[in-house]
C-alpha cells in the first residue's frame, strides 16, 4: 500500500482514537476544541504566486473559503508555504476584490457599475469596428497578411494553460499579431 504522509497522519490519528476507546478506563479529563476545518471540504490547488508550484489545500464550507494551507502530500513544498502563499485566504476575503463589471466613459472622472451583458456586447462591437477599420488584407509589398495592427493584447501568465491556449486562439482569429505578456519582460 502506498501511504502518503497525510494518509499516515489520518491513519495514526484514527489508531490513537481507537486505542482510547478500547483501553481507556477513565473518562477523558480535557477536550481539544474541534478544528475549524473539521467538516470542511478539501480541494487541492497550486499556489498562484511564483513558479515553484507549491501545493495548497483550500478548505471550504457553505460555499466559502475558510482556510488555505500548504499541502503536506505535495512533493515540492511538503506542506510549507511562503508568506504570500500563506496569505492566499485574503484573495477571497477581501473587500477590494472587484465583483461587478465597471465602465469608464470618455472624459469621465469615475467608474460606473455596468452589467456583464452590456459590457460584453459593447466590447464585441468595438472589436469588430476596430478590426474592420484597421484590417490589412495585404501589406505594402502586396503580400497577403490578413491581420490587424490596430488592436493589441498583453497577458497573461496568471491564466491557466487552457485559458492561455483559448486566448491566443481567439486573438489570432481576430487577426492580432501584437500579442505579448509577462514572459517578454
Amino acid at each position: 500500500m502506498e501511504l502518503s504522509r497525510r494518509g499516515f497522519l489520518k491513519l495514526s490519528g484514527g489508531a490513537v482514537g481507537a486505542s482510547i476507546v478500547g483501553v481507556g478506563l477513565k473518562p477523558a479529563q480535557a477536550y481539544a476544541a474541534p478544528l475549524a476545518i473539521q467538516y470542511a471540504k478539501e480541494t487541492t490547488t497550486i499556489c498562484p504566486y511564483c513558479a515553484v508550484g507549491c501545493g495548497m489545500i483550500v478548505h471550504s464550507r457553505g460555499g466559502d473559503v475558510i482556510n488555505i494551507e500548504g499541502d503536506p502530500d505535495h512533493p515540492i513544498n511538503r506542506g510549507t508555504l511562503c508568506s504570500k502563499g500563506s496569505a492566499a485566504y485574503q484573495l477571497r476575503h477581501n473587500e477590494k476584490r472587484i465583483t461587478e463589471p465597471m465602465y469608464r466613459a470618455k472624459g469621465s472622472r469615475e467608474w460606473q457599475k455596468v452589467s456583464w451583458d452590456w459590457s460584453l456586447d459593447q466590447i464585441a462591437q468595438k472589436i469588430k469596428a476596430t478590426r474592420d477599420a484597421t484590417f490589412m488584407e495585404k501589406n505594402s509589398k502586396g503580400q497577403v497578411v490578413n491581420r490587424t495592427d490596430g488592436i493589441a493584447s498583453v497577458g497573461s501568465a496568471a491564466l491557466d494553460n487552457e485559458e492561455c491556449y483559448l486566448f491566443q486562439k481567439l486573438l489570432r482569429s481576430w487577426g492580432l499579431v501584437y500579442i505579448e505578456h509577462q514572459a517578454r519582460i
Partner: peptide, 13 residues
C-alpha cells in the same frame, strides 16, 4: 509567475 512557463509554452507572444 505561477504559469509563466505555461503561458510561454502556449505562446501568448
Amino acid at each position: 509567475e505561477s504559469n509563466v512557463q505555461g503561458s510561454t509554452d502556449h505562446c501568448l507572444l
